[in-house]
Amino acid sequence: MSYFLSLYGRRLTAAIGTHFLYVVVSVGIAFVIAFLLGILLSRMPRQAGLILPVISVLQTVPGIVFIGVLFLYLGMVPVTVVIALTIYAIFPILKNTFVGITGVEERYKEAARGCGMSELQILARVEVPLALPSIISGLRISTIYTVSWAVLAAMIGLGGLGELIYAGVSSNNNALILAGALPAAMMALLFSLLIDLLRRALIPKQLRRDAQ
């Protein structure tokens, strides 16, 4: 173990830092885009029926093809990784935002309208709060996925934990695979905890139905 650390310790800490940054930046951007787009699509369900599948399908393009093609145009720069990860991260948040908001029952909106709220107020004070559990659930799925997708960065020479994992897989070295996979798993758990805290902070107690 200590021998392994003396060999790979510095590379490992650098890889964890890079990996973490890729995840935070990509999920951050993806969340803003997906949240706004989700609200927009919830106002036009018919178009949403066409747009959502198209976006979901981008998800299928294998990582190496996607990042390989982006790499051709953008080169060996971190932006390439961030764009790829962002596009992959958008879908679960978008889908859950859309499902959450369109799932708000009409009677709540009626009631709000009855209180004289404008459409914007209804959105901000009724629909989004009621959809929050679903939205945050999407955020969590996206974040966890992105932690594992961020290994893609290593495919185009841009570091992250993927470096260790790919090296381990291709040289048949299990210790090296674990050295990449364990920190990734812990990072995912950490994010999951943070999102739990966020959920607790954002969702009013009355709406937190799992709390009872």
């Binding site: 190496i64 790499f71 060996m76 290593a154 495919m155 020479g157 570091g159 790919y166």
Partner: peptide, 8 residues
């Protein structure tokens, strides 16, 4: 020194 996927 860059580490890159063999196929790229």
């Amino acid at each position: 020194a860059r580490q890159i996927d063999i196929s790229l």
